[in-house]
């Protein structure tokens, strides 16, 4: 062992000589088995159903509809709104992932200047509040584009999608950089010694191995962006949260309906995001075992 090769200390190695601390492991090691309901799930769902139904049921009397009946009556509209949230989340995720992949590759590229610029852009968009970026997109992107003499209007929700894709891009860029940095340097050396060019090494050796590492944080990011899409209601896009308050107004603005209605919105997102979280944890765990 002559030259001190510039190598990162693996967490496991760092902990090895000292028996005081085990390596840091990201959250729970439970096996993936979501058809089986466990106490946690029951508490979670029961808790939400209680806020939706319980709070309101007591107040329901006479001619007034109970909260559950109100939700039932407006269910198609609310579900349409929720579907719109999902649509925005998918589109902004696709857009942000593509842009983030490019930005991330620039961050680890060979060009010094581009590397700096990509790093700065990543940090800037990663550290800005999502809501500020959303405002940024809403106000800074023109409401119509003129391409070859055709004027195309750009609806608000498309601008919102772009606004959400900015933080996705920045976080994706970091995910790419982190995954590439986490590969042992021996992989680069081996590829180099076999006369692979840098580009070939990247695309044939490094990135294929990174896909697996990037999947859990990428899914986590998707879950976060899905939950962030309700912020579009603040800038006037008609999604589930906007429709929820419209439903509330249509029912005469009864204060007792607010908790159940917002509770219902929480339940919808919970049922969508919780399985994603479980699956992410399962993947993380499997990846650790395979290492």
């Amino acid at each position: 062992m002559s030259a001190p090769p510039p190598r990162r200390l693996e967490p496991s190695e760092a902990g090895a000589p000292l028996a005081v601390l085990l390596p840091f492991r990201p959250p729970p090691p439970a096996a993936f088995a979501w058809p089986r309901l466990r106490l946690v799930h029951l508490v979670g769902i029961a808790g939400l159903v209680l806020v939706v139904g319980g709070a309101a049921h007591a107040q329901a009397s006479g001619a007034r509809l109970s909260a559950l009946e109100v939700i039932w009556r407006w269910l198609p509209l609310l579900m349409w709104g929720f579907g719109f949230n999902i649509l925005m989340s998918v589109l902004s995720m696709a857009l942000g992932t593509a842009a983030g992949l490019g930005l991330g590759l620039l961050q680890i590229g060979e060009n010094r200047l581009l590397r700096r610029v990509a790093w700065a852009a990543t940090q800037f968009f990663r550290n800005s509040p999502w809501l500020v970026l959303l405002f940024f997109a809403m106000f800074m992107i023109p409401f119509q584009f003129t391409v070859f003499g055709h004027t195309m209007p750009l609806p608000d929700w498309v601008k919102a999608v772009i606004g959400f894709s900015l933080p996705v891009m920045a976080n994706m860029s970091e995910i790419v950089r982190g995954a590439v940095a986490s590969l042992p340097s021996g992989q680069w050396e081996a590829a180099e010694s076999l006369a692979f060019s840098r580009r070939q090494t990247m695309w044939r050796i490094i990135l294929p191995q990174c896909v697996k590492r990037m999947l859990p944080p990428w899914m986590n990011l998707y879950s976060l962006i899905t939950m962030a899409t309700v912020q579009a209601s603040i800038v006037g896009v008609s999604e589930m949260l906007t429709l929820t308050s419209q439903v509330h107004a249509a029912e005469g603005g009864r204060p007792d309906l607010l908790a159940p209605l917002y509770g219902f919105a929480m339940l919808c997102f919970f049922l969508y995001c919780y399985p994603i979280e479980r699956f992410t944890l399962y993947l993380e765990r499997r990846f650790q075992l395979n290492q």
Binding site: H41, V43, M227, I234, L241, A259, M266, C273
Partner: peptide
């Protein structure tokens, strides 16, 4: 169970809806 339920709910619902709620 209660602590886990709390964690699971607040991690998997939009913070903005939590604030409204």
């Amino acid at each position: 169970g209660l602590v886990n339920g709390f964690v699971v709910i607040f991690r998997n619902t939009p913070p903005l809806v939590q604030i409204f709620f």
